[in-house]
Amino acid sequence: MAKTMTSAAPGKLERHGLTDEQLRAIFRNMLMQRQLDNRGFQLNRQGKIPFALGSEGHEAIQAGAAMAFDRGKDVLAPYYRDLGLALGIGFTPLEVMLSLFARAADHNGGRQFPNHYSSRRIGMMSFSSILAAQIPHAVGAAYAIKYRKEAGRAVLVTFGEGTTSEGEWHESLNFAAVHALPIVFLCENNQWAISTPVDKQMGQPEVWKRGAGYGMPAERFDGFDPLATYDVVRRAMERARSCGGPTLVEGMCYRFLSHSTDDDDRTYRTKEEVDRNRQHDPVPRFERVLVENAIMTAADVDSMKKDVLRETNAATDEAEALPYAPPSELYTNVYEGAYEPWQ
């Protein structure tokens, strides 16, 4: 069975050079993730959208990693659970809502499932629902960066631990190591791949240990702690940007919700296990850290929460009011230029 996450007691602040403002930005990102996740599930229950998928439990790992991303320079190759990473590098709540509602103004015009965010503007690569398929793409992007000698840029690619069983995952790490590419492989280990626990996914349950097999440095960290995450991912990204090659990092977290609105986790794991992990919920935990260290007052937290709710409501209303793409859009962007479907 999957284990409970254990993590250091909150209270002590290791800020790793982050300013108060950056600490608050991390917290706001975590609150926004939680709020938007909730909204997605609500809209699904209201019958307004057919599908939603949450990242509850991943808030810290994603907000912390996003802080280590150099906007305008680095490239992110995310997976579908990366709401917080997307937000943290500049994707807006409105863009998230456009994806949930599958509106025409969505980056992919409502073609893809929600949570399959991409945006050329912020360097977030397009990906499909096919697990691990994006990992060689990230490696190719890293190759392009190295080939053009663009020092100071790196690629961050993410995936769940279940995805590390795919052949493309292995092939990608191997190639990145051979060519010492500027890339960081970030495993968000939430201990479940839909209904399959780690001990059925891999014989060696610590993903980071495989780094040695590829000849790349690797590290594991507490993914419920955004600052520990930031520290590890920042060092790995710095190594990548300064031509030091790839790193494999693994953040331990937990998936609090069912896999998606189409899944019911009560069929394969106990409520006790989920509750045990909830005790380490990274959002209230980081709130305590900030308040105890006088980075924010309780009143500040309160007004930030209200602000996040207001922004979520506004984004929901705005996206909902926008139109779908017309049916004729089914036939565009198949190839460059005009396309005549075979008929």
Binding site: P136, V139, G140, G167, F175
Partner: peptide, 17 residues
């Protein structure tokens, strides 16, 4: 590793090569 020969080439193409 053919999957990644093509997969890495896709990533290169997406990033301007």
């Amino acid at each position: 590793a053919e999957a990644s020969i093509v997969g890495i080439a896709i990533g290169m193409a997406m990033e301007g090569l």
